[in-house]
Write a protein that binds this DNA or RNA. Structure first.
Lengths: 225, 225
DNA sequence: TTGACTAATGACCCGTTGGTCATTAAAGCA
DNA sequence: TGCTTTAATGACCAACGGGTCATTAGTCAA
């Protein structure tokens, strides 16, 4: 049951107004609050009481909308899955640029998603406590991962048709192409938002590295400005 | 208090022999059991009772050697930190090969550590529930990470002196060099040991990608065999 | 063989927390 | 204004699990 498609959350601690009936808005607010707390504390360590407080409601209210803590996680995952990536996928066909342009756009979207969105909390929970949700890990693999890697693959195939690739596209592991973004996400999950990860420079270095590894004529690409 | 330095665990579910006094062996066995369970279930979700059972002892025995669950995690981290990486560091000075040879050796050691060792459980716990151990996250950053990245940096500097690099070594982010290994570890933490990650091929592709991105003359490197 | 020492045990304690439900009150309507 | 509907509440329950400790038994020196 997809609830919201909005990838940017309407978070903030939520000031406690007396008692208000807002049936429509609740589920999204609860998911936002939960993701925010899970991102910093993990799934098991986050009490539902805390989620409720952050959402500005009482604990019981959560059970009006979600039958259990695990169901809340599933709803959060389904809500946030897809999102930006899909919209990038829609843009791609019209783009028709070089490998550099297309890959740059996709990687940018991936970094947005992994570093600036609370979807990162999902990844964190799936890594640390995913064994509790075997079905959801599978779902994540099929939807989020497969779509991202599938997009990489399509971009590579198009570049190969243009003769830009040094290898046949089947010989390239798409995971390798996105790996530095995953590593950046891990960095953030471990050490939090800090001065140690300069996204812009990192992202540029990533694109540069990958292009040099893939292109027929790598020496023509970005020379540090 | 470092207990064991042995990186390869003496695990196995441990058959329940009646009652035996083995003061020396216990701490290591407990750590092994804990890491094995944390790797698949996470820290918070693993009961100490389960750790004890796996180690072939009773729960109370754990508290004979570790004052608390968190202390057990700290001991496990301190026990496993360092290890293989340090031994590679000792080998490096004598090696004096090409960038390819040196980096290949280091990456191989990193993959060993991240994919074949229960140290991976530490990373998993630190990612998912690290907020509970701020001091240990810092320790991990300083010891494990800094030593790994420092080694990359030293290898790069040596390669630069030989004129092998296209960029000054300061311009290369060492994290970028190891990123695909981190991504592989994430893959494993998410989906477990499966047919989907062919380590040998992946590792080779990793080395190839990085070398092409770094070397002055990348076209001379590995052409797919 | 026996006694002293202490590693090992597991029943027990109690704080925590996911989940319930009788009660309260906001909102809409006549 | 009063009545009905139902969203929201929070006190409460029960299970769970980290941590304790009186008791048991392995080991070894005398």
């Amino acid at each position: 049951m997809p609830l919201t498609q909005e990838p940017s959350p309407r978070s903030e601690p939520a000031p406690r107004r007396p008692r208000q009936r807002r049936k429509e808005a609740r589920p999204g607010e609860i998911i936002d609050a939960a993701l925010a707390l899970w991102a910093e504390q993990g799934f098991a360590a986050t009490r539902l009481e805390a989620v409720a407080t952050r959402a500005g409601i009482a604990k019981g209210t959560i059970y009006l909308y979600f039958p259990s803590k695990e169901a809340l996680f599933e709803a959060a995952l389904r809500d946030r899955i897809g999102g930006t990536l899909a919209s990038v996928g829609a843009q791609l066909p019209e783009l028709e640029g070089s490998l550099e342009a297309e890959l740059g756009l996709l990687l940018h979207a991936i970094y947005d998603r992994l570093l600036e969105t609370d979807s990162a909390a999902l990844l964190k929970v799936l890594i640390g406590e995913g064994h509790r949700f075997p079905g959801l890990v599978e779902l994540y693999r099929e939807v989020a991962l497969a779509s991202g890697l599938g997009m990489v693959r399509r971009i590579l195939e198009r570049a190969a048709q243009r003769g830009e690739l040094r290898l046949p596209p089947e010989a390239v592991d798409p995971r390798m192409v996105v790996a530095p973004a995953i590593a950046a996400a891990v960095w953030r999950m471990l050490f939090g938002v800090g001065p140690s990860l300069d996204r812009t420079a990192y992202e540029k270095a990533h694109l540069d590295l990958v292009l040099r590894g893939l292109l027929v004529e790598p020496c023509s690409t970005t020379q540090s400005p």
